[in-house]
């Protein structure tokens, strides 16, 4: 019987998990434990709906509604002095709850604080661009689209950034295999030589340990060295290994004690 492989998440899985094992949690602190964060959160809560907020590993995490993202970031930039958008991207939770988590990593240089603003959007929803606030979002949003296929509204130059323009699929989705799909496997061959060259070039070798014993064009045969491209018959003869020294490596084949001198004085 063929082994069942889930289609919605093709990432590598742990092959064994103790059935009684409970994953520990990274500790979360209340926002009120940090005065700076508490004030920031109050300012955000005054204008927008905050779904959840806590402090984890010295940074505040704020969950907002996806339609508020521009407003919240504008407020944070203009009033709360979070002047830099360090990073933004998405996390694929489609197989668990049919959503992408989008996070905006904000940095305030005057307060020396970092806040992560997060929101969740459904699969086919689009999100508003924050490119007008932070130019860095221009490229981040393009990368997010490239990797996850999340559309961004009102982006000035919306196209793929890392993958080629004619690429199919969004690589960081959990449904996308690490080694690529059929399109990815033949991409360069199709593009350069054409589809009919597939048979000549052959499929990619993805197995790290693949060795073809009888392929003398691509694999060296240690101990049984044969010329490049030689056909190997049954019962091949061993070919003499040549070393850099003229007559091979110097080896003592036989030691005759009578005809040799033993040195006792080391300083002679």
């Amino acid at each position: 019987m063929r082994r069942y492989v889930p289609k919605d998440d093709v990432q590598k899985k742990a092959y064994y998990t103790d059935r009684y094992w409970v994953a520990p949690q990274v500790p979360k602190a209340k926002v009120s434990s940090d005065s700076v964060f508490a004030e920031d959160l109050k300012a955000i809560e005054a204008k927008f709906k905050v779904l959840d907020a806590y402090i984890q590993v010295e940074q505040m995490v704020v969950y907002i509604q996806p339609e508020d993202n521009f407003g919240v970031l504008e407020l944070m930039k203009k009033e709360l002095e979070y002047t830099q958008l360090s990073e933004m991207s998405a996390v694929d939770f489609l197989s668990q709850r049919g959503e992408f988590d989008i996070f905006y990593q904000m940095l305030s240089m005057s307060k020396r604080k970092r806040i992560r603003v997060k929101c969740a959007i459904k699969k086919d929803e689009a999100i508003e661009s924050v490119e007008k606030l932070f130019r860095s979002a221009d490229w981040s949003e393009r990368e997010m689209y490239d990797m996850f296929g999340i559309k961004v509204n009102n982006h000035p130059f919306f196209k793929r950034i890392l993958m080629p323009d004619d690429w199919e699929g969004h690589p960081l989705l959990k449904t996308y295999p690490l080694h690529g799909d059929e399109f990815a496997a033949w991409y360069e061959v199709d593009k350069i030589f054409g589809k009919e060259a597939r048979d000549i070039i052959g499929p990619e070798i993805r197995d790290d340990a693949a060795v073809d014993r009888y392929d003398t064009k691509r694999f060296a045969r240690l101990g049984h060295e044969v010329p490049f491209g030689a056909e190997i018959p049954e019962g091949e003869p061993a070919v003499k290994t040549e070393y850099q020294e003229d007559d091979g490596v110097f080896l003592i084949e036989r030691f005759e004690k009578e005809s040799s001198t033993v040195i006792t004085d080391r300083d002679r």
């Binding site: 993958m163 690589p171 996308y176 295999p177 690490l178 080694h179 690529g180 799909d181 990815a184 360069e188 061959v189 350069i192 070039i201 990619e204 070798i205 993805r206 790290d208």
Partner: peptide, 18 residues
């Protein structure tokens, strides 16, 4: 030579394919 450690969707598995 072979794609090396980058055994991923984005890497050509050996320049001798081209």
């Amino acid at each position: 030579n072979t794609g090396g450690m980058f055994n991923t969707y984005a890497t050509v598995q050996g320049a001798d394919r081209i």
